[in-house]
Each structure stands twice: as structure tokens, then as C-alpha cells.
Design a binder for these strands. Structure first.
Lengths: 338, 338
DNA sequence: TTGTATGCGTTATCAA
DNA sequence: TTGATAACGCATACAA
């Protein structure tokens, strides 16, 4: 036989429906109904509510979840919770999710691909009803796991075209074109790109978009520097560049790189934007903090987050929906640097 | 009578221990044991593992949690997930928590006190085994709820002295003194404070610490401007200040304000640090992004987060521990602005 | 070592 | 309207 059942009256620890029911002198079924606002005679309801109040009853969400087969938790897997772009996205997602009465379970993957697939295996059958993820690069392993998750997943970022998974993406090619067009309109002709890692999806798109946009205007790149998507990389790359040539405009692959480039320009005594115009990308808070402030291309991180959350919520409502693919249009935000 | 039990064989949906047990031709108890690495003959173990692999079995964490009375989730309630200080703290906490095999459930409270008490009521009996919270101001309502939570709580921030709750705090008074001492050592005598909201705990401490430190050196404040803890407030306040007087040093209550102050100084053609030295506070990433870079007082946000996580983890190990109170020492990080 | 049966706390079904 | 009880999926005490 199994364990002996506790004597109800002597049961200690946090209050359960049972505690409330015993105290009110009703069945746990009745207690549960009253506590959930489903029926119950006025007299019985009053007794139950009083008992619940008296013992400080709070429903155990775990038990409720086991019964309901849902937790009300949405997972968010993001490479770096400190990256300003992700911060914008997280804020938007958080707001949207909170509006639906759910909570966000944020998980940092630290860019480890192994982590991400592990996460998919885990989270998908763990505590979350759905998952939003923004992988840096999508591997075969990702796709494999994505195919067999038990809960709906929305991917923010590039995904192979035929993948039957809800997907929200930025149009960074169009975004780069916005920046280049603007610089050309300003009369700049010697334009360079300070890029991040060219073997990432964002890096590759920045490079391709830059060359295509310049070609459209009949220009050649005066230079392209590759590195990381960081302040330091932007600083170093721009120093290298200035040793070699003198551009009249710089397009930086993100605002961190742009801040580094600005630093290098200013320390070299170059005036921005008079001598060198500078355009960043992502339109993060950083663009407001520098002097001069950065003109930057907004790839719609917040809008992507909001849309991703909406896609997920709608799928939770109706799991039969076909896979959707949304693209967020970029916008140029003009400030003083170009 | 209740619902009819499903026929095991016909049961569809995600695989459970039952699915695995049936497929392997063993009892669910044996299946469970093997899956948890507790005994089982080699032959039986092999059959169970093969079955589990075959159906892609992943344990249901909710059911496991209900049985184990723990979720492995740690809640983190923070006012603003975008604030760089909190980002540093979150990163440190996340690392520490992950190291213990647990996961972080991050919740933004958006500075609504009502939200925070609601959160305490909710989270405390919901999905988390413990809670770290960093309230902007601690009210009576907070303390009341903190007294009756069912799970351990660690508060990062100021708490009344006798409160029997694990607590980690910064020493901002000592931090302000570090900044003022440094400016005085540089030979500056006309020092002003650009503060945030003076009716918050941090704001009040900045103000008191500033006046005390100056007095120690026999100086009077040349000016104190109050506002918010934002870039814009710092910008406006510094513009107002420069209309009225010309200091030779500015202490800003945080890095955002310092960035705003720097902007105001540069647009007025004032050289930093030659004409006006500038010291910020919090030593966030922002301090690295400006030109010149900001000298800033590190109040140890990361260290506080790490310590808070350690306190919580140790309490989860041993709930009988007495309440602890830790204070993190500040440090001045010198860069170019002072 | 293996199987049977019970309980974790909740909601839902059915009968009274 | 109310009460008895099954079931969510898992782990474990106990018996075989």
C-alpha cells in the first residue's frame, strides 16, 4: 500500500483547498467552485471565502497547471539580455505578453548554439506554453528541434524560406539602403562600411546590402572593415581605416560600432558630420547619448518583438493557423551625425 | 464516478512515463526509476531507455514540480529591465543561478508599487522557489507582504534595519565621497551635483553624501540641480546650471545624467575635463561610449546581484539561516572625464 | 529488482 | 446546489 493519508485537521504547511474546505465545513469541490467564482449558495460562498481569507489561501499554480495543461508562461530565449537591441525587443514583448495575463520567462542563451537546442528540448516540454526565440544563427540542429517542439515557437530572425514556423524578420537590406541613400543625398561619395562579423546573418546582410546600394548609385566602396558588433571593434576598425584612407562618410553596422567609430573620428580631430558623416543602425538608446547624436536606421526591434508576441498569442488561441512570415520595414531616424 | 480512464495504448499526445512503460513492457515505477538513474537491471534499463528514445520522451516538469514541491525557478522582480544598472545585475544573477542548475523568471514591475505587492502575493506561491527583488522604494505594504511570503526573498536595496529579511545594499554615501574626494584631489573647488529625484532613496543618499563629503573638505556646494535619473534631465539641468554659474566640476548622480551633462557642456563649447571635470555614477556601459569616456563610481551592481543570488541559494539549502545583511563597497573607475 | 498503489493540489465530471 | 472521486504526470513507500 502507499503512504498513509494525512489527517486533514493536523495538516500543517501552506493552506490548500482542503484546508479551506475543512475549515468551512464543505467539500473541496464546493470550496474550489466558490474560489473560482463558479456557483455556490450565498451562505456557503460566504463561509468558504471567510475561511480562505482566514488561512491566507493562495492557489498553487503548479497543481493548477498540471490540471489545466498550461502554465501561462511564455519563454523568451535571447542571446544576450544586455544587448540594447534585445532590451528594446524584450520590453515590447513583455508588454504584449503582460496584456494577455501571461508572464515572461526570460532565458539567456549566451550565443551557445548547444544551449539553444538544449533549450528547445527543455523549455518546449517544461514550463512554457509557447516560446519566442531570437537565435544568432540558425543551424540544422535548430531546425530539427524546432520541428518537434511540443509548444508553439516564433522565431525572430532569418529562417529558411520553406520552414513552416511563425517568423518575424527585419529587412536589413532595405535598412542599409536607407542609410546609403541618405549619405548619397548629402553629397557624400567616399563611403565606407564598418561591419560586424561577416559570417553571421546580420553581418552578411549588411555587407551585401551596402555593396548593392552603392552600386545602384554608381559608386564603389572606399573600404569595408570587418570585426565584431562591439564598441571596441568599431573603434579599432575605424582607427585602421583612417590610417589608410579618408572617407567622407561611414556607415556602421550597429550603434555600438558607430559609437566606436565616432570615438576614433573625434580623437583624430575629425569633425562630425562636417568632415565625415556617420550613420549607425538599430536606433538604440546609444544613438541619443553620443555627441553629436547618431543618425541611425531603426530596424524595428520593438515592432518585431510586439509582432512576434502577437503571432504567438494568436497561435495559442488557434493552433490550426498556418505558419506566418512577417517583415518589419526599416526607418531612418535623423539626428546630428549625418 | 469520475471520468473514464484512457486506454493506455490508444493514448495520444506527448509521451509520458506511461507511454514509455507500456512500450517497454514494464511498470511506470520501473520506467521512472530507470529514467532517473535509480537502479533497474541492465536488461530492463536498456528496454526503457530505448523506448524513451523512440518516443522522444521528455519529463513533464510541471508534474515533477508538483511531486517534488519545487520548480527550480528563481523569480527576479526588477523595476525596469532596460536600465543598464539592472542589466548588469541581471547578468550576474543569471550566471549565478544558472550555475546552480536553476532558471531565472524575470518580471518587470514598471515601478508600480501595487504591482510589486501583487507580485509578492502571486509569485511567492506560484512558480518560484525563491525571489530576488529590487524595489525602488520600500513601503509598509511591501514589508507586510514580505513577512508572509511562502518562499525565501532577498531584497536588493535599502530596508529598515530591523527587518528580518536577507538584504544586499550598495553604499552610495561612500560612493559619492569617492567621487568628491577625487574631484577635490584634482584641485577642483567649485563642484556641483546634478541629482535625480531627491524623494527616492538613491536621490536622497546622493544629496546627503554630496553635502557631507564637501563639508569634510571645507567646501560649499556651488549648486545642486534636481530632476530625474535620465539623459534628458541631465541635459536640461546642466543647461540651467550653466546659465547661472560656471562650476569647475560636476558630479552626476548616474551615468545617464552624466551623459546629458556632457552633452550640455560640449554644446556650450566647454572642454572636458580641462575646464569642467565630470564624474558619473554606476559605471555602466554608457561610461565607455561617450567622448571623452566617463570617470564613474561603480556601486557594484554586478557584485550585488551575485551576492543576492548566493544568499538566496544558500537559504534554499538551509532555510534555518538567520537573516543576513551585506553591503557592497563602491570603487572609483577613472577614465578621461575627470 | 520489480510492481502496486498513493499522494502532490487542483479542476472537472458525474451522481445525488 | 452540493459532494464524492477521477485525472493531470510524476515519484516513491511498501509489498512481492
Amino acid at each position: 500500500m502507499g503512504r498513509k493519508r494525512f489527517q486533514h485537521g493536523t495538516h500543517t504547511g501552506p493552506a490548500t483547498v482542503r484546508t479551506v474546505a475543512d475549515l468551512a465545513g464543505v467539500s473541496i469541490a464546493s470550496a474550489s467552485r466558490v474560489l473560482n467564482g463558479l456557483g455556490g449558495s450565498p451562505e456557503l460562498s460566504a463561509r468558504v471565502k471567510a475561511a480562505a481569507e482566514r488561512v491566507g489561501y493562495v492557489p498553487n499554480a503548479i497543481a493548477r497547471s498540471l490540471q489545466a495543461q498550461r502554465t501561462g508562461l511564455i519563454g523568451l530565449a535571447v542571446a544576450d539580455i544586455g544587448n540594447p537591441v534585445y532590451v528594446q525587443m524584450m520590453r515590447a514583448i513583455e508588454q504584449e505578453i503582460a496584456g494577455s495575463g501571461r508572464q515572461l520567462l526570460i532565458q539567456a542563451t549566451n550565443a551557445h548554439t548547444a544551449n539553444e537546442t538544449e533549450l528547445l528540448r527543455g523549455l518546449a516540454r517544461r514550463y512554457v506554453d509557447g516560446l519566442i526565440m531570437s537565435p544568432l544563427r540558425v543551424t540544422e540542429a535548430h531546425l530539427h528541434e524546432l520541428g518537434r517542439t511540443a509548444v508553439p515557437v516564433v522565431v525572430v530572425g532569418q529562417l529558411p524560406d520553406e520552414t513552416p514556423i511563425d517568423n518575424v524578420r527585419a529587412d536589413s537590406i532595405a535598412g542599409v539602403a536607407l542609410a546609403v541613400d541618405h549619405l548619397v543625398e548629402l553629397g557624400r561619395t567616399r563611403i565606407v562600411l564598418i561591419n560586424g562579423a561577416p559570417d553571421t546573418v546580420p553581418g552578411a546582410h549588411r555587407d551585401a546590402g551596402f555593396r548593392a546600394a552603392l552600386a545602384r548609385h554608381g559608386h564603389e566602396p572606399v573600404g569595408v572593415e570587418n570585426g565584431e558588433f562591439t564598441f571596441d571593434a568599431g573603434l579599432q576598425a575605424t582607427r585602421r581605416l583612417l590610417n589608410r584612407t579618408r572617407p567622407d562618410a561611414i556607415f556602421a553596422a550597429n550603434d555600438l560600432i558607430a559609437a566606436g567609430a565616432l570615438h576614433a573620428l573625434l580623437e583624430a580631430g575629425i569633425r562630425v558630420p562636417e568632415e565625415v558623416a556617420l550613420v549607425g543602425m538599430d536606433n538604440t538608446d546609444i544613438a541619443e547619448l553620443t555627441f553629436p547624436r547618431l543618425t541611425s536606421v531603426d530596424l524595428g526591434a520593438a515592432a518585431r518583438g510586439r509582432k512576434a508576441a502577437q503571432l504567438l498569442l494568436s497561435r495559442l488561441d488557434d493552433p490550426t493557423l498556418p505558419a506566418r512570415r512577417e517583415s518589419i520595414a526599416p526607418a531612418l531616424v535623423r539626428r546630428e551625425s549625418a
